[in-house]
Amino acid sequence: MTKRPVLVVLFDGVQSLDVTGPVEVFSAAGHFTADADADAYPIRTASLDGAPVRTASGLRLTPDTPLAGTEVEHTLLVPGGEGTRAPDPRLVDWLREHAPRARRLLSVCTGALLLAEAGLLDGRRATTHWAHCDRLARRHPAVDVDPDPIFVRDGRIATSAGVTAGIDLALSLVEEDHGREVALAVARVLVVFLRRPGNQAQFSAQLAAQTARREPLREVQRWISEHPEGDLSVEALAARARLSPRHFARAFRIETGMTPGRYVERIRLEHARRLLEDSRDGVEEISRACGYGTPEAMRRAFVRTLGAAPAEYRRRFRGHVSAHTESP
């Protein structure tokens, strides 16, 4: 089996989950490969001087080796965290010199800022935590910053959004290297979604909206998410919340930041996208499962929001996946 060593850069103020999330994915993957090679992704951690670092949450991490003299064999992972606000110039210099040697260069969260400081993202498309995209764009105008995706692949360089997005990125790489079944097995062990494409939004529809303060409205939000195929008219939802339609619509908008109709539209579209990506169901079946009623209604929603009909969206998605099936 081809081994793909992973070198993880550590520094004071690093976000611990940026490190441990991808490491857990790579570590678990070996147990599910064809020959169950637990060392499919040999992992090393390194800090500037080889000394322990304190994470942003106060945990101490002890690296395996100092960065000086450490060779990048395959994958270099650069996490983010508070330590990226005023990075040690020696770290930036090390990245500038050594990161170009990596066959795969990955950043998690604000680790993209370190790559940008080293000039490694100039002329490339990249993302980072949504709260730091403006900062990345202002400080590094040569970087094409996309604030929406969970992760972005641009050649051998991949940048991911905030914190847990590093898990999504790592899972996508495991899928490239060893196939969907291995990646899915890892996702199940870690109890996370297997999000294959980087073009998913950083926020799900539920996260994009505020959570209502009152329990009846929160229950309605849960109901919508769990029953996209149901009767989600204002009248039906108001009855579930035991409010008049007018009072419900007003309260829902005030507490969630969007109208009930807009929330339902986002939930249904997100559910339809996932079914197109992860199932073999036909467009007509998916349109019923997502509450659109007819394929034409779903087509109009997709064209209006995504600029592509459902069949075209599925074709593009599969093209995106197949474009990355060759292992580096």
Rank of each mutant, 00 (worst) to 15 (best):
P260S: 11
E176F: 06
A301K: 07
R262K: 07
L306G: 09
A212K: 06
H320E: 10
H74T: 02
G111K: 01
R316S: 14
E175A: 02
R288F: 01
L169E: 04
P216D: 00
A142E: 08
E277K: 11
E285C: 10
E235W: 11
P22F: 00
Y263H: 09
A68Y: 11
I150E: 01
R188H: 08
R253T: 12
P147A: 03
L114K: 00
T325P: 11
T20F: 14
Y292F: 10
C290L: 14
Q206E: 15
Q210I: 10
T20P: 05
R135T: 07
E312N: 03
A29S: 05
R180P: 01
R246I: 13
A51H: 15
R188Q: 05
L17M: 15
L171C: 10
V23C: 09
E73P: 00
V23N: 07
L173Y: 03
E312Q: 02
R156D: 01
H132G: 03
P310S: 07
T62C: 06
Q206I: 09
L207S: 12
P87L: 03
D37E: 01
S172A: 07
A137V: 11
T256P: 08
R196L: 07
V6I: 00
L217Q: 02
G83D: 04
E73M: 00
A311C: 09
R315N: 05
T2K: 06
S279P: 04
D146I: 06
S47Y: 08
V283G: 00
G166L: 07
Y292P: 06
P66Q: 15
P228I: 12
D146C: 05
V8W: 06
R315V: 11
A272P: 03
S225H: 12
H140D: 03
N199S: 15
E265M: 10
G155T: 04
A34R: 12
T45E: 10
S233M: 13
P79Q: 03
Y313C: 07
D35A: 14
I43R: 02
G261E: 12
S327A: 15
R180T: 12
S233K: 08
I167K: 06
P228Y: 10
T75G: 00
S107E: 05
A308M: 13
D12Y: 12
S244M: 13
